[in-house]
Amino acid sequence: MVQSSFHVPETYDIDLDRVRALLQAEIQPESQHEAFELILGALLLIQEHYGWVSKAAAQVVAQHLHVPFARVYELLTFYGDFRLQPPGEHRLQVCNGTACFALGTPAVQRALEAKFGIAAGETTRDGQVSFDLIPTCLGICDLGPLGLFDGKYYPKLTPETVGQIVDQVLRTPRGGSQHDA
């Protein structure tokens, strides 16, 4: 997976005290085995809250679970769902499951890449927009090509309509996802 081209200032990081509190509240292993079993869950919990997992946050996970940091970092870099750099202010995702692909995701992808001058998997230099393809499908295949922009679904995208829809999304301040409605 291409990593973000967005330059992260050294000082920028996730609030580690909040991460500690989060782990304390939600991740409580009862055995050594379970400590290892919960590494992925802990990393996903952080990503759910912050949209990415920093190296320092991964270190906090290792301390909390009493497991080697090497193991935590290994999983963080192996599994495809994790972001190692912060996502853009606005997240544009387009499903690239087989049905969406057959229904026209490649054309939508080209339109978005041209619009923002970035490839799928990247973030614009100003940190405003990140664009990703979802390889494994959002599972709402009758609506393809399907976009998930800032947590809301946008069905049946075309290269002609996607630009306007995205402009609308970028004008809207980040809110809750459709699930919270």
Binding site: H33, A35, F36, E37, L38, I39, L40, G41, L43, L44, V67, R71, E74, L75, F78, Y79, G80, D81, F82, T136
Partner: peptide, 23 residues
Amino acid sequence: RVGGGGYIAGEGSAQMYSIMGQR
């Protein structure tokens, strides 16, 4: 137990490694 993405985690032995906190 929640996975971290990856088609291969659907394979039986790979899934067990994933549960054990490995690749």
